[in-house]
């Protein structure tokens, strides 16, 4: 049963990954990419890592890929023109592909998959969220904090890059607007006839 599901999922992942590259329309590429992310999450569920699977869906499919799609949809680039010169990059692509396959094969051969303790849930932990938490906040605590700090720096960097003071535009002062009372803006005047204010 699990084997059948695994083969179905792996076919879908492979086909959609190929379709990401082959698709002519960039938006279709992103949609295929999302499908392959999603199916990869399904495969994680199959090996019993449901916490990781849900994180993959929440972070990559639910947030990162939405922003991909957002950007690609708004770009107005002629992709046919862009793809014309792409043939000369083929040797590099092949080289990278071969290196990647070689590395994975090497890793797979040196340790038998599934026998490795990394692939098995921690014995004694009730759920795999607990297992990950127990390792993440003890053994890898410093690395985890470091990753958080790197992300924080990246975030601050992005904010600093886009934050510039422009005196020529009007800004809203929301606190000021909501604090306004009737007396600040209006004035009751009794106007005498034929005189005006």
């Amino acid at each position: 049963m699990e084997l059948i599901a695994f083969y179905i999922f792996s076919v879908i992942v492979t086909v959609s990954a190929v379709a990401v590259i082959v698709a002519r329309n960039p938006v279709h590429s992103v949609l295929w990419l999302i499908l392959s992310f999603f199916t990869a999450a399904g495969m994680l569920v199959l090996i019993g890592a449901e916490f990781l699977a849900m994180l993959l869906v929440v972070v990559y499919v639910g947030a990162v890929a939405v922003l991909f799609l957002f950007v690609v949809m708004m770009l107005d680039v002629d992709f046919v023109e862009l793809k014309q010169g792409s043939l000369k990059y083929w040797p590099f692509a092949v080289l990278v592909g071969i290196a990647f396959i070689a590395e994975i094969t090497l890793a797979g051969l040196s340790r038998e998959m599934g026998q490795n303790e990394l692939f098995n849930p921690m014995p004694g932990a009730a759920t795999n969220a607990e297992a990950i938490g127990a390792v993440l906040y003890t053994q890898y605590f410093l690395l985890f904090q470091l990753a958080g700090i790197i992300l924080l720096i990246a975030m601050i960097g992005a904010i600093v890059l886009t934050l510039r003071y422009r005196p020529d535009i009007q800004r809203q002062d929301i606190a000021g607007q909501t604090a306004r009372r009737r007396a600040d803006a209006t004035e009751a005047v009794s106007v005498e006839p034929n005189k005006g204010i």
Binding site: I34, M54, V57, V58, V61, G62, A63, V66, L69
Partner: peptide, 8 residues
């Protein structure tokens, strides 16, 4: 996760 996919 699933409710975050609704945006698609």
């Amino acid at each position: 996760a699933v409710s975050s996919l609704g945006v698609y």
